[in-house]
């Protein structure tokens, strides 16, 4: 092989290597960027946002279901753990799920697995201690793999007649920072 050809081969290989590295970095960043954008667009952190029933005008999250009411709490654990409380809807499918900054779904519980009438969740990150939970209701500690993420409630509108009750129940869901939790030693 001539020296010139060898040089060409070297630069072609270098170009492919650059392309590969860019590809892998883009692939790694993409879900994180999509998540950060979604969290920003969903509204203030550590606050519950109850959405309207999705229509063609709903353009924040892709592929929303028009048969579901969603409530969202974008969270940021930098100022302490997050406490989430909500009534459980037992008349149709209801679930509460949690997603980390990487878009992974790290927790989900539905109404059939939650016999109680209400649920309390405390979301903590690594090294964060959690406050005492209210013993009266169904409760869980969630360990978030990332500082930011999303709590998402889904409630199926199985019958138009049930819509006002489902909407009212979702509006009772709350989330907020628990500032008083002590640090783990």
């Amino acid at each position: 092989m001539s020296e010139r050809a060898q040089e060409w081969l070297f630069w072609i290989a270098a170009t492919i290597l650059v392309a590969l590295v860019v590809h892998l970095v883009a692939l790694y960043l993409l879900p994180r960027v999509v998540m950060m954008r979604a969290l920003d667009r969903l509204g203030a952190a550590n606050t519950m946002h109850v959405g309207k029933r999705p229509t063609a005008a709903a353009r924040v999250i892709v592929r929303p279901s028009p048969d579901i009411l969603y409530a969202t709490c974008p969270y940021d654990l930098s100022k302490g753990p997050l406490r989430v409380t909500a009534p459980v809807i037992h008349t149709s499918y209801w679930s509460v799920s949690a997603f980390d900054a990487n878009t992974d779904n790290f927790f989900v519980k539905n109404d059939q697995k939650t016999p109680a009438d209400s649920v309390e969740l405390v979301v903590v990150k690594r090294g964060q201690a959690w406050p005492k939970l209210d013993a009266a209701i169904e409760r869980a500690i969630l360990f978030s793999p990332s500082e930011k993420g999303l709590i998402l409630f889904r409630a199926v509108i199985d019958d138009e007649k049930h819509l006002p009750a489902i909407d009212a129940a979702l509006h009772q869901a709350r989330c907020g920072t628990v500032a008083s939790a002590p640090k783990l030693r």
Binding site: L24, L27, Y28, L30, P31, V34, M35, A38, I61, V62, R63, S95, S97, F99, N102, T103, D104, N105, F106, V108, N110, L150, L152
Partner: peptide, 26 residues
């Protein structure tokens, strides 16, 4: 989709076309 087992390709596709999908048991 939606589970921590997903590979980077699946995760990226789900982020774009099915963000906040639940796992398949749910």
């Amino acid at each position: 989709a939606g589970s921590p087992q997903s590979d980077p390709y699946t995760r990226a596709r789900v982020a774009l076309h099915g963000l906040f999908a639940l796992n398949r048991n749910e």
